[in-house]
Design a protein around this nucleic acid. Structure first.
Lengths: 342, 342
DNA sequence: CCTTTCTTGATGTACGTTAGTCAGAAATGA
DNA sequence: TCATTTCTGACTAACGTACATCAAGAAAGG
């Protein structure tokens, strides 16, 4: 009834416990034919190594390192806080979490942090990626050293990362367009896009998805080229104010990055009537208030808590070479209107 | 460096291993003052029992029983399929899952199934609740017998269930209203509501949230009394066709339960122009096609896979009396437009 | 045929906990 | 004070796995 153990495998394969152990842990000194016998027995019995007993025995502690962007961006500060919570909880599962902060949008700094993690000999790295050749190179080195790498929130293209945990950002952009388009109903005019930086893949993908749907389904709406505000409120406010001054027919705004305090500032200063429809990302204190005030119409949100939890599950599975359910990494986009604020 | 063990506690408390064990596992024969010494030592060291080692030692297998509604409803059939997947995976965590199916909306049958689970001596029960005094009674009995109970998808009011896993259904209703109201823009007319049964709490709550927001924010839209279709396509089609015939000014429909195949049938037969805006629940093959065809405008969805996973985590934590992060049970509502279908 | 190398078995200890037994110590009552 | 009850300690085996050591057997080389 209960699951088979190494003893059962040994009995069925007609070998000793030691031999089963040698096969199981890839130690040498076992003839190929014997290995086959053992593997056949494991398969026949449906043997799966008991991870808890195994970890107990080898006193294994998973050493996971997170590399995340520093700076005043409230989304990333939330993430850092989230990690502290998880660090405590994860200890129960033999997982030790360390964190290093790097300047945002800086591939060189990120790559350096990755190298330090490699030197420290961690078991796995979870990182918020910035697109850069140096970073891709550093990731390859980590993988070559047998260290698992998972990207979180923002992925790294054409890289050796084993997994990505986060929302589907193309889909997020499409969702934003679907909502904004429908909210603008039959009005005609321009749509402004506010981004952080085109160096991070999540922003690139959101923009892509947004433009796809806008062009296909709402061709009457004119898209302005994106403003790059570096996720900083002050810069967003300055740049957007400028754009609002230039165009008096902006009826919709999609902000796919940070710095939404600046967005609101610009809107309040401009005071257009009727006010443009606004869809932004990330529910923060500011965006929540703006929703309630009717200045923002919808907020797209990803659940960082869950994302971190998923990243931990996944990287542990990778380290143990346990199969991973594809759905584990996919986090859903939440949509908040003023009506369903939590 | 590594976490403290019972040995450390014994040393610090200046007692033997046996005594620590007696305290830890609530066995008697330990003086109160000594108990205090041991507890103080555990606290001082930050001792937490190693669950993996403990389970290994006592050969514990968590025996979890799911009770879910039977019937042709594709949402519930998905759930059943989901459980089979989890049953395989959960074995790795010393968790054995059994399932029993009961007729939907039938409190008596549900209560009977709960009693059978009690007799079988399972460690925990996860159930999709139907409101009924008998069910509440059965749940109390389970809890009295030391069996943990978690409600899934639909909660049970004023009951002893230890936890609920599912979406916030009031919020779901509010979201639906927020979307439908905005989609209907400035048009005036009636809104039809299609429900399954007012015997399940999730439907009651969705209706409540929907009406809250409709009355508060879109007072120009007239709500018709809900149609109760029992989550069956045929009944929904018949009843809704009737309503559509009676009223030619229906501009929006909110379907908060199952049987959406019938909803679409009724719409196709009526063929109103302009077609009403439609918001429904649960992404199925039918509702996906209807979205793509532009017959449905938005689908609200809950991720059953994740819900089942959460329910398992939670009920295991309850059984082990481990603290539970409040966010674990909350599952987010996903919103699908034709633009962001997965 | 003997030596060397390769393969296998037997055995023991450890991980942190549970759970039992048994003997001895301490506290309690009269 | 002694007999009795109540606590406590020391010890042991077990859970399923990892890992090391030693010895014995098989195969291969000369």
């Amino acid at each position: 009834m209960s699951r088979p153990t190494v003893h059962d495998v040994a009995r069925v394969a007609k070998v000793s416990l030691s031999t089963v152990d040698r096969v199981l842990n890839g130690r040498d000194g076992v003839r190929a034919t014997t290995q086959e016998r053992v593997r056949a027995a494991m398969k026949q019995l449906g043997y799966e190594r008991d991870l808890m007993a195994a970890n107990l025995s080898r006193k294994r502690i998973y050493d996971i390192h997170f590399v995340i962007p520093d700076g005043p961006n409230s989304f990333m500060r939330n993430l850092a806080a989230e990690l502290e919570t998880h660090a405590r909880i994860a200890l129960r599962d033999r997982t030790e979490i360390t964190v290093s902060l790097v300047p945002p949008f800086d591939g060189r700094a990120l790559a350096a942090a990755l190298r330090r993690a490699k030197e420290a000999g961690v078991d796995g790295v979870v990182m918020v990626a910035t697109e850069s050749a140096e970073v891709r190179q550093a990731v390859s080195e980590l993988r070559a050293a047998g260290i698992q790498v998972v990207t979180l929130i923002s992925d790294l293209s054409a890289s050796a990362r084993a997994h990505f945990v986060g929302i589907d950002n193309v889909s997020a952009g499409r969702t934003a367009a679907g909502l904004l388009g429908r909210f603008c109903a039959d009005r005609r005019g321009r749509i402004a896009i506010v981004a952080g930086s085109m160096l991070v893949r999540d922003h690139v993908e959101r923009r892509l998805g947004f433009e796809q749907v806008m062009h296909a389904e709402f061709p009457d709406l004119d898209l302005l080229p994106p403003i790059e505000g570096g996720d900083e409120a002050a810069r967003v406010e300055a740049l957007l104010s400028d754009v609002l001054r230039k165009h008096d027919d902006i009826i919709g705004i999609y902000s796919l990055g940070g710095g939404n305090r600046g967005l609101r500032g610009a809107l309040d200063r401009a005071g257009a009537v009727p006010r443009p429809m606004v869809v932004v990302h990330e529910l923060t204190d500011q965006s929540r208030v703006a929703l309630q005030d009717g200045v923002f119409d919808a907020v797209l949100q990803q659940d960082i808590h869950r994302e971190v939890a998923s990243a931990l599950v996944i990287i542990r599975s990778l380290i143990e070479a346990v199969p991973i359910d594809a759905r584990t990494g996919l986090v859903h986009i939440e949509i908040f209107l003023r009506d369903n604020l939590p």
